[in-house]
Amino acid sequence: MLWVDKHRPKNLDNLICHKEVGANLKSLVASGDCPHLLFYGPSGCGKKTLVLAMLREMFGPGVEKLKAETKEWKIERPEISTKIEVELTTLSSNYHVELNPSDAGTKDRYVVQELIKDMAKSRPLDMAGQKSFRVLLLNEVDQLSKEAQHSLRRTMEKYASACRLVMVCNSVSKVIEAVRSRCVTVRVPAPAEAEICDVLQYVSKKECITLPPEFAARIASSTDRNLRCALLSLEACKVQQYPFKSDQPIQLTDWEVYITEIASDIIAEQSPKRLYQVRGKFYELLINCIPPELILKKLLFELMKKIDSELKHEVCHWAAYYENRLQKGSKAIIHLEAFVAKFMSIYKQFIISLFG
């Protein structure tokens, strides 16, 4: 098991980061009821850890007895005289169900409707000391289509007595106001580098290894305040070399190394042939489930390290332009390739002007 999962705090009292948020959640649970909740914050900040710790506080250790299953829904559509089949993998306990409805693509709204209906039908018995509702944990709510979010709003109201929604997202601005207004929003900020160092030292003690403070600080500063990445980097560095040295290089993930190579390829040559090669590498990243927004962001950072300061403003402008198109479009590869083509054009014109 990866250290990031193995040493995840199970109780709100054991949190190293976000203790104030944990205390507020504990008070909310102690009040005897739980409204719909929307957790938001940057990737790797600890949203999922807080949610799981809150569920354990609410229902006890039974929420850790998980069962993974692939569920299939067959939804009848009388207006088009056909059935729509949707298949998704869920994680469930006796008290909650967790899934990522955006994995269903354009059919996500049917998943939202049918799953909440199923949960409402199988609500737990209202026994002494137990909650009379189940929790539906929805990941990446900001990736849901607008139709799915509107469906979510209606079903939230209809089945509120039998089902509570706990939603997790990176950007709350992509969640429609109608859904946000029906939830208590919980902001989870990225942990400070000092807090990340504390977590790294805690995990190191649990694994019985010695971590130099200077090396922990370098890991924390290299991961852009992403706690998940920091723990993965620590584990990778342990595999690479132990005992640790203060000047030991930080082990990057394979996809980060791959994007660094793509950036070098783009700078080395600007041609249709090179663009075609870069397109193939983008496909490999997307097939391995690297989010296109993350690919674009990392590629931009790598390119910015290699170009003249005179170009940086224009390159950032076009990166923002294609990121916006990426959010609105359905084929990520088209917009990633378009950004690279635009960058090649700008960079080649700049090189020609220097020697012209």
Rank of each mutant, 00 (worst) to 15 (best):
M1G: 15
L12T: 03
I16T: 12
K19Y: 05
A23W: 02
G32F: 06
Y40I: 06
Y40A: 03
Y40D: 09
G41Q: 03
K48A: 11
L50E: 08
V51N: 06
L55M: 09
E57T: 07
E57W: 02
G60H: 02
G60N: 00
E64I: 02
K67M: 14
A68Y: 13
E69M: 13
W73E: 06
I75V: 14
E79H: 14
S81G: 10
L88E: 02
T90W: 05
T90P: 01
S93G: 07
P101V: 08
D103R: 12
G105D: 11
T106W: 11
K107S: 13
D108M: 01
R109V: 05
D118H: 15
D118K: 14
A120C: 15
S122P: 00
R123Y: 08
M127K: 07
M127H: 05
G129P: 01
K131D: 10
K131S: 15
V135I: 10
V135G: 05
L138E: 05
D142P: 10
L144F: 00
A148Q: 01
S151K: 02
R154Q: 15
K158W: 00
A160Y: 14
V168I: 15
C169L: 00
S173W: 02
V179I: 14
R182H: 03
V186R: 09
P189E: 01
A192R: 14
A192V: 10
Q201C: 06
E207K: 06
I209K: 04
T210D: 09
P213W: 00
E214S: 14
R218C: 00
S222L: 01
D224A: 15
C229R: 14
S233K: 11
A236H: 02
C237N: 07
K238Q: 11
P243H: 01
S246C: 14
I250R: 10
Y258N: 06
D265I: 00
I266N: 11
I267C: 10
Q270V: 09
S271G: 07
R274N: 11
L275T: 11
R279H: 13
I290F: 02
P291H: 04
L294Q: 13
L294P: 03
I295D: 08
K297R: 14
S309G: 05
E314T: 10
W318F: 15
L326V: 05
L326K: 11
H335V: 01
I351H: 13
I352A: 12
I352P: 04
F355M: 09
F355A: 08
